[in-house]
Design a protein around this nucleic acid. Structure first.
Length: 308
DNA sequence: TCCCAGGCTCAAC
DNA sequence: GTTGAGCATGGG
């Protein structure tokens, strides 16, 4: 057991906005605490004024781990002032001031967002939870049973039927294929942090002999992984929610052709081709700057909360 | 019942 | 290079 407090005095930080904005899928609120599984332990967090109170299942899960995970070392004040280019983003920033981008485990982030395709957040939480309960190592905390996120080897050796039983549907074969690629070393996730955004992205979506190394990882999923677990703050994931925001509030950033593609995506009729996705994201990146990913996350969360 | 969801793959132009 | 169907499933 470890108990510690992190002093966040003077830091823009809101625990709820950060944990509950659709970046990670395993945090849950029980009473006044937020419970989560980090690495090989369980931790519960509570924000009390300038203090972030933490209780963890092991000494290894300490204040350094939590501080880093929550992205508290970033100069959020500076980042936010750099992205507030207009009234629309300024409103999102002011409404959810203190929302931070977390530094997640790459493997967990990769698999979670591969699972997230064409689904919704409540269901993603369910699918991820099912995988952990079935394949993850159990950990006891406060008399309750939690499960670690399973390692690539464990997922790779799971039967397809077993994955389908987790409710993954057609995503099951992608999950298995991704786990095998990571286990076999055809994709080294750790190296992604060493490269810049575009090189890391190339590696994630790399093809060998015309075949993708990571099945199920398209442009949007790749951007989520790079933004949420590889410190690539300029990544700008575009899903239906963001497409909606871009179409409504930022049409001036795009030519007529791109506006049509956006409208088609918003209507659910077609998905964005890779080339179209790149052009849209590049425009957004050019507009919001080096921290475009933060802008994306504030816009995303704001849009979802508006719809109630 | 129908629509939608932090999209992607694959075949056919 | 672009387009469109197909995909499994559960929440609203």
């Amino acid at each position: 057991m470890g108990q510690f407090t992190i002093n966040t005095e003077g830091l823009p930080f809101n625990l709820r906005y950060t944990l509950d904005s659709g970046q990670a899928f395993r945090w849950s609120e029980k009473g006044e605490w937020w419970y989560g599984v980090l690495g090989t332990g369980v931790v519960k967090l509570k924000q009390e004024g300038p203090a972030l109170v933490c209780v963890s299942s092991s000494d290894a899960l300490n204040s350094h781990t939590v501080y880093n995970y929550l992205g508290l070392e970033e100069d959020l004040e500076h980042i936010l002032s750099s992205i507030m280019k207009d009234g629309n983003i300024t409103e999102a920033v002011q409404t959810f001031y203190g929302l931070r981008l977390m530094k997640q485990d790459i493997w967990e982030c990769l698999l979670s967002f591969a699972i997230a395709t064409n689904s919704n957040i409540p269901r993603i939480r369910g699918m991820v939870s099912n995988i952990c309960q079935r394949l993850g190592e159990p950990v006891e905390f406060e008399g309750a049973r939690y499960c670690l996120f399973p390692r690539p080897e464990r997922v790779a050796e799971a039967g397809l039927a077993e994955l389908v039983e987790c409710g993954l549907g057609y995503r099951a074969r992608f999950v298995k294929s991704i786990a095998e690629a990571v286990r076999d070393g055809r994709r080294n996730l750790d190296e992604l942090r060493l490269h810049d955004y575009s090189k890391a992205r190339e590696l994630l979506m790399e093809e060998i002999l015309g075949k993708k190394t990571l099945m199920g990882i398209g442009p949007k999923v790749a951007d989520c992984v790079l933004l949420f677990s590889c410190n690539k703050d300029s990544a700008f994931p575009i899903d239906v929610w963001i497409a909606r925001v871009l179409e409504r509030s930022y049409p001036h950033l795009f030519d007529d052709s791109l506006k049509e593609k956006l409208a088609s995506k918003v209507s659910g009729k077609t998905s964005l081709s890779e080339a179209t996705y790149e052009r849209l994201a590049a425009s957004a990146r050019a507009y919001f700057g080096e921290f475009a990913g933060y802008a994306q996350q504030y816009l995303f969360h704001h849009e979802r909360m508006e719809e109630g």
